[in-house]
Write a protein that binds this DNA or RNA. Sequence first.
DNA 1: TTCATAGATGCAATATTGTTGCATTTGTAT
DNA 2: ATACAAATGCAACAATATTGCATCTATGAA
Lengths: 137, 137
Amino acid sequence: MNDTILRKKKLRVTPFRKEVLKVFLKNDHAISMQDIENELGDFDRITLYRTIKSFINKGVIHEIVMPGDIRKMALCDQVCDHDSGLHDHNHIHFQCKKCEEVFCVEIDKIPEIKIPGFQIEEQEIQAKGICEKCSGS
Amino acid sequence: MNDTILRKKKLRVTPFRKEVLKVFLKNDHAISMQDIENELGDFDRITLYRTIKSFINKGVIHEIVMPGDIRKMALCDQVCDHDSGLHDHNHIHFQCKKCEEVFCVEIDKIPEIKIPGFQIEEQEIQAKGICEKCSGS
DNA sequence: TTCATAGATGCAATATTGTTGCATTTGTAT
DNA sequence: ATACAAATGCAACAATATTGCATCTATGAA
């Protein structure tokens, strides 16, 4: 139930937030602002912006940015239930060159990068290629 | 000389382009659209957008996007002298949490990621932490 | 169950960012 | 020196995002 998700993240359960969350839940890939707007029937754009912002801050969803002005969002794992606005993810972001969708893909272990002189605290990997579904066809 | 860079990438050498290129050359870190606008005295914004677009297409600069609506650009290595619009880079993108600058940092070898079912063709690594300069202070 | 209140919503107005079409100017190859 | 494709600059516009404020509502406490 999406009520549970919201409550867990200390967000008030409102009809609008449930609607927005539903859009995320029914997609297995990352979605854009446009996608959400298209899926919501009637809505107030300002409220949507604010909803998205609080979802990100509370760790309900996370932002994915990729070259080419691609800005999408996807649900967070259970892991990130913190109020800090920081997100920990054990996955990489993958964009399919065929269907153009962006997915969060779990991987066993994120390789550690080391750079002399730099202290790396977080890292994120973005990849492009052909996704599972498009490989088959 | 920045004339050489432009000619090598098959771009006409115009005063404006030289100005923009100069801004990139004098920074050792990635810069934003805002940064460029601030450094250029008097300019036409539309021309700037178009200039940036052709610089990216011809491989003079590359785009760097990071979570938090960060969109910056930096000069490409000599390597990417192709007209395809694709860029090959042997570096990762690093953002310092202290000075907030974004750097292109060369690393020895980019680790290979493998995901069952997915064909990875390109990948990019983004990291956050403390940069060389800020570590010292 | 009712009530008070912090938080969420919706509207208006506005800011920021990026694009398109078109006339004019300019860099470059001949 | 010249012709022409490419670049520029202007006007108009489109898309995206933000702020302030009045109103409404979800939630915890009485």
